[in-house]
Design a protein around this nucleic acid. Structure first.
Lengths: 238, 238
DNA sequence: AAGAAATTGTACGGCATAGTACCGACGCCC
DNA sequence: GGGCGTCGGTACTATGCCGTACAATTTCTT
């Protein structure tokens, strides 16, 4: 797959690069399709590529030796998958996989390292995203520790909604229960509650956001801090 | 206060720098005493310095507009406070304050930015720590979402124990309840439980670790993943 | 020494979520 | 179009933690 010209690129980080930096990336990048459940970064294996999503969503999951799993960060076209490489870290105990299929521009690890080593502004932009991702993970820690399931679910749906086109996206209760670290039937009842309040519409394997403002209210203060900081850090004016 | 010679420095990141890099830092650094509750990084204000702790512990806390607070990362002599500056981020919504008093080597923000810009290995070491900190925060998210209060308390005590000299350190139930995002009486009973099992000894405003192995067992799989990765990433051989 | 403040111990009802089990419904595949 | 696997709905008990209140104890202040 070809890499789009910068004019048409949908990844936000790529879109705000200087034409020169963009060209440098373009010359070593390739376009790829991301299928559901594709593993972009495998746990404890060398990171092979970074992925700049054009569409779709990836989830970073932390796990324990005993098999507990929980989502700690989600990335869509607003970011990049492969932050460790910016920090000269070549592998990670976390797994990152495709949650909603889409397309991406990807760059081989060594080439990416060279690029960020040589290009200050590119390094700066990816660094800003890395910090936004840290804030998101911290927000998840806060949310997991002090919000109800319903609030956390609302937060999660909002974060997905921010990253997809349109108001509907595929997701199962079972999947949500893993991401949020709760029981599956708990997700079912929480979804019913949000649906009963007219915020969302749930179909088999799909959720549609009907009233984003109400959903924000349902999320309470669990949503917003990392999002605001992302906007402050990463803006078109570089 | 003077900055120690590298031979006697206790901060782990400083201790593994090349003599050349250490000297460069030393020439712009100053030693400071850290008092309990001193704010090292204030929320949403310019970061003035980075702090490389020689002793003591600092806590990074995430907060919501409505005043929920929870600890997302803890740093002692194994790390550095002020990671955002490495990523060219000049402020953060999180607050970092001194949890256990001690000493630190600190470097003014602009000087630190210049140093990491110019010195590849220094940048690499701080970057590795930044990633270890991300893993710790992710571990906190996982733990908050899927472990019991008792397990989380055990994890927290272990993380403190890792960062102090000796087996005893000052901490109140009230403080712990904020850090863990739970009720204060919940902390009291959890401490009693650990104490009853002979893992710790609690005195007013103090906790002493008696049996670290048992404490690890009590923490279950909530403790260990970020710690192992820190050791892998940051080792004496650079 | 007395009062104030901080810290810890304890109790109790109530709710949120866990754990588990089972069934119905939908959709895909042969 | 029948069968099977995935997905979602519901029910029940168990339990961990919340919210709250209040008292006892230790330490600090004056």
């Amino acid at each position: 797959m070809p890499v789009p010209s910068q004019r048409y690129v949908r990844n936000h980080l790529l879109s705000i690069l200087s034409p020169d930096d963009y060209e440098a990336i373009q010359s070593v990048a390739e376009g790829v399709a991301l299928g559901r459940r594709d593993i972009l970064i495998a746990a404890n294996k060398s990171i092979t590529h970074v992925y700049l999503l054009e569409s779709g969503i990836a989830s970073e999951v932390a796990a324990t030796p005993e098999g507990r799993r929980i989502e700690v960060c989600i990335t869509g076209p607003e970011g990049i998958v492969g932050v460790p490489l910016l920090l000269d870290v070549d592998r990670t105990p976390h797994e990152t996989f495709v949650q909603i299929e889409g397309d991406a521009v990807r760059v081989e690890a060594a080439a990416f390292r060279r690029l960020v080593e040589e290009r200050r502004i590119l390094r700066r932009i990816v660094g800003h995203y890395a910090y936004a991702a840290h804030l998101q993970t911290a927000g998840t820690a806060l949310s997991n520790g002090s919000h109800t399931l319903e609030e956390r679910l609302a937060r999660w749906l909002l974060m997905c909604h921010d990253r997809v086109d349109g108001d509907e996206f595929p997701v199962t209760h079972e999947f949500l229960s893993t991401m949020l670290g709760v029981r599956r039937p708990g997700v079912t009842t929480a979804i019913h509650s949000l649906e009963g309040a007219g915020m969302i519409k749930a179909r088999r394997s799909h959720v549609q956001v009907l009233d984003r403002d109400k959903l924000k209210a349902a999320a309470g203060d669990s949503y917003g801090v990392p999002e605001a900081e992302y906007r402050r850090l990463i803006h078109a004016g570089r």
